[in-house]
Design a protein around this nucleic acid. Structure first.
Lengths: 262, 262
DNA sequence: CGGATTCTTGAAGTCGCTCAACGAACGTGG
DNA sequence: CCACGTTCGTTGAGCGACTTCAAGAATCCG
């Protein structure tokens, strides 16, 4: 059954992935064709035989514990990674300590594309919970592009999509009020969960308030106050990191730039 | 002679490109191998014969008048464009009127990569002065990738580089004070002109104050005030749109996050 | 020249930040 | 299982950076 909702009271350390999907991932660990993410991930749209070829080059599946790094800035670049289970954040930390979380990744998302330009990773990737990734050797991927034009085409779409995603964040950071930024953040999370078969109205935040704030260019106190206001206004119900979207329409209106009445 | 500096008092409508380069572009309009931008542009690093192949697929060179659109959001995507002469801005305008200038492009920069994902352009591209672009049919480019692996590799580097560029803007918008953002903007412009053989310390702003402000998430009045402060502090000399960087070190210190003394 | 656009400067206002204190949840070790 | 230190989150009061509003100066360009 698709569209399992994230569960209610789960201790933080346990990956909040529906048991069925999680078990599924364990059992059929090594083949894209049986992976539930094959319609989101890099091999999307490949035929049977091409997907098998792709499968051949995919390296080991790695488990990354919570708070551990998948890669660090300036690490040599050899692999792209596809998130299989769990959540990650990518961040850049400047010499002077300035930090920006550039994105949150969930199953099906591809990590490491910003490393291609320089041969070294350009950001850190940190697991927000115990997670798993598929390791994709980039040089082998490049060889495969010659064989499978549709794989190349999809890869370009993914990179282009990443550029778009970042443009959207630029709009958020450059143009929007705090309230609107947070509304956009929630609607975005919601639709990403929806396209992965999870509940769009009922999910668990894998990141701290501080990380949300950093990503949105706001302080932790602002996030806290905004959540309180959203809740008071009846847009959402927030219990610790458990979020229930109560008024999707109003939230989307906020995200579109309409000011809140309160 | 390389490193020509931009010139002093030039009317706005005239492209502020050194005469020699401009004439060069006119005369040898249709071949990458004689283009002064071949070390920045898409065919960078190709050998003679591969560059000739690439040259074959490059379509017409277009002239775009100031304030005219190279493409508009939602236009069907057929071509990437390489800036040959002049400057552009790319912007996204949301339904509610929110606008964000996502970048300023100069000769050698590649335009339109955000369109690959959806088959339609995701932003507007507007000429800031009378400009010229080379039109690169994307479907032919894709075919060529099979022939010229090094072209594909460089294309990936360019897309990855675009992702990095936008991450840097995210840091600017999310983490930095107004002062620091402007300093970063200037040092960035400076180094881009330097890598194109222009003076890094003496250049003409092709964009309005308002456009700088929009790009940096600030109001036009803030830009104006900051420029006045920078000038008073002796970091730069600003005469209308003519900029001379007087204290490169201090400006870079500001850009790195050190607060100004004033 | 003269209207329109762009830019500058000042004064007042506001949104989000800083600082501070407290409370809740976690998780490690007894 | 509870105790206790630590991390994380909430709330309030005051402040400051940037915005908004407004007016005027400079520049552009037909």
């Amino acid at each position: 059954m698709l569209a399992p909702s994230t569960q209610g009271r789960i201790a933080r350390t346990i990956p909040v992935i529906p048991d069925s999907a999680s078990a599924h991932a364990q059992e059929q660990a090594n083949h894209c064709h049986s992976c539930s993410l094959r319609n989101l991930c890099l091999p999307t749209g490949l035929g049977e035989s091409d997907m098998a070829k792709f499968d051949m080059i995919v390296g080991r599946r790695h488990r990354i514990e919570r708070d551990k790094f998948l890669y660090r800035m300036n690490d040599p670049f050899k692999y792209l990674y596809a998130v299989r289970v769990g959540h990650f954040k990518t961040q850049r930390i400047e010499d002077n300590g300035e930090q920006q979380i550039t994105g949150f990744q969930m199953p099906g998302d591809l990590l490491g594309m910003d490393a291609i330009a320089g041969g070294h990773h350009y950001s850190d990737s940190v697991a927000l919970e115990d997670s798993e990734v598929c390791e994709i050797p980039f040089s082998k991927l490049e060889q495969l592009f010659a064989d499978i034009p549709s794989l190349l085409r999809h890869f370009h779409r993914l990179m282009s999509h990443e550029i778009r995603r970042e443009q959207n964040i630029m709009i958020s950071l450059g143009n929007m009020r705090a309230e609107q930024r947070l509304a956009v953040f929630f609607t975005n999370l919601s639709s990403r969960y929806a396209s992965r078969g999870y509940s769009p109205s009922n999910f668990h935040l894998r990141m701290k308030r501080e990380e949300i704030g950093n990503h949105l260019g706001l302080r932790i106190e602002s996030i806290s106050r905004l959540l309180a206001r959203f809740q008071k206004a009846g847009y959402v119900k927030v219990d610790n990191r458990e979020v229930r979207i109560l008024d999707k329409i109003r939230l989307e209106t906020l995200a579109a730039g309409e000011m809140a009445a309160c």
